[in-house]
Simulated assay, not measured.
Amino acid sequence: MIELTTMTVRLIGSEPDGIRICHVEGESLTTVVVPRELLSEAKRLPDIPKRGIYYLLDEDHGVIGRVYAGQTTQGLARLDAHKSRKEFWNKAVMFLDDESNMDRDVLDALEADAIGYVRTHGSYETDNLETPQPYVNPYKEQTVKRLHKSILFRMAVLGYGLDRTDTAVAAGHALFHTRRNGIVANGCYDERTGRFTVLAGSQVDLSRPVLKNVGASEARKELFGEGSGVSTLRDDVAFGSPSSAAVFVLGGSQNGWTEWTNEAGETLDAAYRGKGTETR
C-alpha cells in the first residue's frame, strides 16, 4: 500500500519566494512562511490563527545559518518585535491553530520540544540558549509529539529541514558567504588550521577561468571536468586558504579575506585578523 500525504501550498501574489500558506490534509494546523520584507503585507491576511510556534531563520537557498524558535498567542503580529530587535533573520515560518486545538499546556510543551530540537540538531547556530521545562499533562503528550512531528515534516517539505548537518559548521565555525556576480556560495573558516570549507549547495561560476591558483583549478577539474556556466556543489570541499576557496567559486583572482562576509556584513579579515591583505 502506498502511503500518501497531501500538502497544499498557496502562493500569495503568485510569488514562489513570497508569502506562502500551507495546509496538510486532515490537520488543522496552518503554516505561514513570511519573508521579513513582506511582514506588513502578511499581517493583512484574513483568517490566520494566532496560537502556535514559529522559527526565525537566517536562510539562503535552503541553507540555514541561524535559527530562533518561540511561541505566540498574537499570530503574525508577534513578528513585529522580532523585526525591530533581531536583525539576523530573513524568513519566519509560523505554525498556528485556534485555542480549541492548542491550549496553553500544549503550546508551552510544543515550544519546549521545538527549542530542544534546534539546540541539539542540525549545523546552524541558535539564539535559544536554554530549553524550557514546562509541566506536560500526560494526557496531552501524544498531541504534542504529533504536532511536533508534523511541524518537522512541513519544514522539510518547504526546504527548511532542521536536521541538516554540515560537518564544518557543526564544529562551531561561523558561516560566511559571497554573492558576487549573482553567484551564491556559503562556507566556513577554521581558525586553527586556516582552512576554508565551501559548503554543499554553493554555486560555482565555471564561466570564469581560474587565474594562478593551482588548488582551485585542480578542484574544478576534478569535480566538474570541462563544464561551463554555473554549477552547484554537491559535497563540501575544503581549501588551504579563504582565497583558494573564493577563486574556486568565482574564478579569476580573489582575495578571500575580503570576499567572504558573515551575516553582520563583516569580512573574514575583520572577523579574524583585522588586517587588509591576505598572507596565506
Rank of each mutant, 00 (worst) to 15 (best):
F95E: 00
G194P: 06
E125H: 06
L223I: 15
G161C: 09
G201Y: 07
G70R: 00
T197M: 12
R180D: 09
D163I: 00
T197W: 06
R51K: 13
N262F: 11
D108L: 11
A114K: 13
H177Q: 11
L129A: 14
R66S: 14
G252W: 03
I21A: 07
F153S: 11
L38N: 15
L45A: 09
A69L: 10
L45K: 13
P132V: 15
D108E: 08
Y124N: 13
D166P: 02
T120G: 05
V118F: 05
Y68S: 09
T8S: 15
V249G: 03
G276L: 03
K221F: 00
R10V: 09
R10I: 10
R179Y: 11
G201R: 05
P134C: 01
N213Y: 00
L96A: 10
R36P: 08
A216P: 03
Q142T: 10
S241K: 04
G215R: 09
R146M: 02
T31G: 06
K83V: 15
S14Q: 12
L38P: 09
T165W: 02
F224G: 13
L175E: 02
G13E: 04
D98R: 08
A168L: 01
T120W: 02
L175V: 05
H121R: 12
K50G: 13
G256D: 03
T258F: 07
S14A: 08
S217G: 08
G251T: 00
Y68L: 12
A170I: 00
S243I: 00
G172L: 05
A170R: 15
R234M: 03
G62C: 14
E41G: 06
T197D: 13
R51A: 12
S40K: 14
G182F: 10
A114H: 12
R20K: 15
H177W: 08
H82Y: 15
T258H: 11
Q254Y: 06
E266K: 06
Y54I: 07
E226F: 01
F95L: 01
